[in-house]
Each structure stands twice: as C-alpha cells, then as structure tokens.
Design a protein around this nucleic acid. Structure first.
Lengths: 152, 152
DNA sequence: TTCCATGCAAACACTTTGCACCGTG
DNA sequence: CACGGTGCAAAGTGTTTGCATGGAA
C-alpha cells in the first residue's frame, strides 16, 4: 500500500511522508471519518500530527484518488478509502444511523438523470437524508442530529 | 399570504413580525437563497434586519413548514419556499449550474431504498453532484466551485 | 402586561493561510 | 541541495448565543 501511495504521489510530483502514510492508514481503518476523527486516530497510533496537516493531506489524498468524501451531516465531511466498494449513503434523521448502499442500486436513477438532463451523477458522493425508523436519537447516542432543519 | 404566515406561527405559539414577513418574502422572491443573500435582498426592499434574525427566522419558517433548505454547495444551505412544486437538485461541478428536477423522477429510486432498507428518502432535500457538460466554470462566472474535493 | 422577538456583540466551530524550519528525493 | 511538506499561530468564514430592549397579542 505504501508503494501504491508513493506511486500516486510521485505521478503528481508530490512526496511520500510519514504523515501522509499515517493519515491514509487512519482513513482506511476508520471507514468514514471527519478530519478531527482522523487526527484523533493518528494520535493514538503514533506521535502527534498537526490538524492543518490533516486537512492538507486529506485534500492531497483525494486529489490523487485514494480517498473520497461525502457529507453525512451538516457540518461534517467524512472521508473514506476508495478501495471500499463503491457506495453512497443514507442518513436517518431519527436515529442518526448511516447506511452504505452499493451504487448499483442507484444506477437506474442515474440513467434517468442522464436521459432527461444529460447529467452524469457522482454516485459515490451522494448522501440521501430521510428516516429509516421511528426511533429517536437517544437510541444511538453516538450520532447527534444530522442535518436538521428540513421540516422533519 | 400574510394571514397564512400568521396562522402557521400562531399554531406554534409564535408571533407575526415585520422581519418574518420580509424574510419570507425574500425567500419566495429569490427562489434559492443563502442566509446572506436573503439579508441582502431584505435590505434592498426595506430597512435593515440583523443577520442573526435572518438565521433565527429561517429556522422558524422551516419549522412551521413554509420553507425548506438544501445544500447546493459545501458550505451553503439555500432556502426556498415550499409552495414551489416539489423538486430536488442537480449541481454541476464543471459549470456550477443548478438544475431543479421534479421529485417524481426519483420516485423509483426512493421506492427501491424503501424496499431494500426500509428507508424513507426526503427527496426535496436531495442534492446530486455531478456534471452536466464539459464546459469549465468560466462559462458561468456567478457560480463558483460547488463542493470540490471529490476526485473531480 | 406578558412573553416572544430583535439587535448587538461576543463566542464558536471549522477550515485556511503565512511563514520559518524540516526532510524527501 | 532544491523544493515540497510540516508545525504553529493567526486570520477567515459562517453560524450561534447571551443579554437587555422592544413590540405583538
């Protein structure tokens, strides 16, 4: 993996650094993580890295195509490795849970947008808000209110 | 319309104020507007209103069901009146344009999510990023880079 | 006359930037 | 040893909050 990373970076004239390796590892390990969570994880596995480095590195890793991001809540971009199978997200406003769905489920929808509007949807970036159950947030204490506002 | 607003507010034990009227008018007039744009518009049609009042009022208007919001760019909630026909949005990363699409186009997609995951999608809140053309941003100078990052 | 709403300013959370030093290639 | 990367601290955005005053019902 390190060599894959090194190669991708080199192709863009960029360098492999321990921080970039650590941050990529963190993203791969965490699944869907915010910059803050990435930082927290890196700090457990190793010495400190600066928050601004995390931001800059996540951008670089996305540029070279190794990670992607989606907006699972109003103020929280989350990053995940592209090696995961292609998926998009459903976010429940009641219980706060996030469901990953294979992009093939949205293929028909994407085809329709293509026909009607000549629009090529970026499915892996898609996040659909809604409700998966009637339970209230207290059932999932870890997931505070994602994107409220919408006349829930 | 003022009476509709007054009624909705009263039902929640809230009051009709000139600011609330002005802000609702602005949202209806602008179509899709950010809090800043709403403020700017209110200021052209009338005396000043405070930004924090705009935020608080947009929240209230959404709570009573008169407006809704969607995320057309990374850090930019835009509000629109619910009286518009139900629609969701396509945002092109190349030209920056926003396309409104009737929610019935996504009905099949929503049905699939319901079957597979028991998930009820909030279609009017949906925003799909992608590309509608090969043109670069310079073609639409008014629309700066919506949600970049995603390995464009 | 009672609360709700507003304005103002400060506080906030998140992200970006400038700059000097460090380290990869 | 050149140039890209990092850390640190400061500056930005966009949004929220506390509090005293103002106004709708």
């Amino acid at each position: 993996m390190r060599e894959e990373l090194r190669a991708r970076l080199r192709d863009s004239g960029l360098r492999l650094t321990p921080q970039r390796e650590l941050i990529l590892d963190a993203v791969q390990h965490l699944g869907h993580a915010t910059p803050d969570e990435v930082l927290a994880h890196v700090r457990t596995t190793s010495s400190a890295v600066n928050l601004s480095t995390v931001y800059r590195t996540l951008e670089v890793l996305e540029d070279v195509g190794l990670i992607r991001h989606a907006h699972l809540a109003d103020r929280a971009p989350t990053y995940h490795a592209v090696t995961d199978h292609e998926h998009f997200h459903l976010v429940c406003r009641n219980c706060g849970r996030t469901i990953s769905v294979d992009t093939h489920v949205a293929r028909g929808f994407a085809a329709r947008l293509r026909e009607l509007h000549g629009f090529e949807a970026d499915l892996p970036h898609l996040t659909v808000f809604g409700t998966c159950c009637a339970a209230d947030p207290s059932d999932h204490p870890d997931h505070p209110d994602p994107d409220p506002g919408s006349h829930a």
